[in-house]
């Protein structure tokens, strides 16, 4: 909210003519955005009516549980996009986040299987995740490489390190912490679902309820203005990549608990993570990524797969629909941004 106020103030300095011209397009974008939300709502309504068992508490908690890992990763991605700006080609993006999770999971599972306790193994996983994040930060902020390319390179580094560590095998893991995550529950809600709820609450409060979050939006929205206002842009941008690495580490612990092992192929999650972060922008008035929007789209992606299965529609459709939605949202976003670009 406050971020959008700041953004508007920046916009006030624009020429009046351009403002008037963009107002029309902005209205168009609003219509398309509401259309997208209506499409989301229509799909959900269809599931509620036709998918047997869709609305049962048990099923909904299942979906929250299934969304936990994707959610934590998507928050990392969202933070990077907020801090780096949401321009798809030159803005912030962390392509290494899923591979980083794979590496952290491998480190965590390997250390556990070597007999190190939870405390040390978790600490190591988080350290590795943040180190990979710091490497991204160094490449993007230090060397000034395009985030798209820098994080693509780091993706390969992380994936290679994971392969070296695990030799592309499944590393089984069990520990007291994993036991709690697998079978623990509180108020009828499982530990994994709680992990998503608590993590979401923290991210929403930090990004949308503090002056830190406000400055983060300023850095991503208009770096020059932020710099002029005395905000250290490099620090904030670097911070988002390290935070993203932290999210990858947290997600890795959740994933090891869910699969009772670290397994190859974590990189496959990247598309869903990107989808969640990008889809989330339609829930914001100015098409900027928000933590709440990301949460909604993560749950939407989870409900989509779930609803299709309950309707006995082939799972092959899920990918297709997900891809179509990304295309739609990116189209809408570019359309809305077109109005700003023309000023």
């Amino acid at each position: 909210m406050s971020a959008s106020v700041l953004h508007t103030e920046v916009g006030v300095s624009d020429e009046k003519q351009a403002v008037a011209k963009s107002a029309g397009r902005r209205f168009g974008a609003l219509v398309v955005r509401l259309g997208a939300i209506a499409a989301f709502a229509a799909i959900m309504a269809y599931f509620v009516i036709f998918a047997p068992g869709f609305t049962s508490t048990f099923n909904l908690i299942n979906v929250v549980e299934q969304s936990a890992i994707l959610g934590v990763l998507a928050y990392g991605m969202t933070a990077v996009i907020i801090g780096g700006g949401s321009d798809v080609t030159e803005g912030g993006i962390d392509l290494s986040i899923a591979a980083n999770m794979g590496l952290c999971a491998a480190v965590y599972a390997t250390l556990l299987s070597m007999g190190y306790g939870d405390f040390l193994s978790v600490l190591a996983a988080i350290a590795v995740g943040m180190a990979v994040g710091a490497l991204n930060a160094l490449a993007v902020v230090g060397f000034g490489i395009l985030p798209l390319l820098a994080t693509l390179a780091v993706l390969n580094v992380a994936a290679g390190m994971e392969l070296t560590l695990t030799q592309n095998t499944v590393v089984g893991a069990s520990s007291p912490l994993l036991g709690v995550l697998v079978s623990g529950s509180f108020l009828g809600i499982s530990a994994l679902a709680w992990a998503l709820i608590v993590f979401s609450a923290i991210m929403i409060v930090v990004v949308h309820g503090t002056s830190f979050g406000l400055r983060l939006y300023a850095v991503g929205g208009h770096p020059e203005a932020a710099r002029a206002a005395g905000i250290s842009v490099p620090f904030y941008v670097s911070f988002t990549y390290v935070l993203s690495g932290f999210c990858a580490a947290v997600a890795s612990i959740l994933t090891v608990s869910r699969l009772s092992a670290s397994t190859p192929g974590s990189g496959e999650l990247l598309l869903s993570v990107l989808a969640a972060a990008l889809l989330g922008t339609v829930f914001s008035r100015r098409f900027v990524p928000t933590m709440g929007g990301t949460l909604l789209s993560v749950l939407f992606i989870g409900l989509l797969a779930n609803g299709f299965q309950l309707l006995n529609v082939s799972s092959y459709w899920v990918n297709g629909v997900q891809g179509a939605l990304i295309l739609l949202v990116v189209a809408i976003t570019s359309f809305a941004r077109g109005s700003e670009g023309s000023r």
């Binding site: 068992g53 099923n59 299934q66 869910r258 699969l259 496959e268 797969a305 299965q309 309950l310 799972s315």
Partner: peptide
């Protein structure tokens, strides 16, 4: 070929 997806599918399947 995705473990995460298979687990999610099995979890929903149990509920079905």
């Amino acid at each position: 070929r995705k473990d995460q997806q298979q687990i999610a599918q099995l979890q929903t399947l149990i509920a079905q």
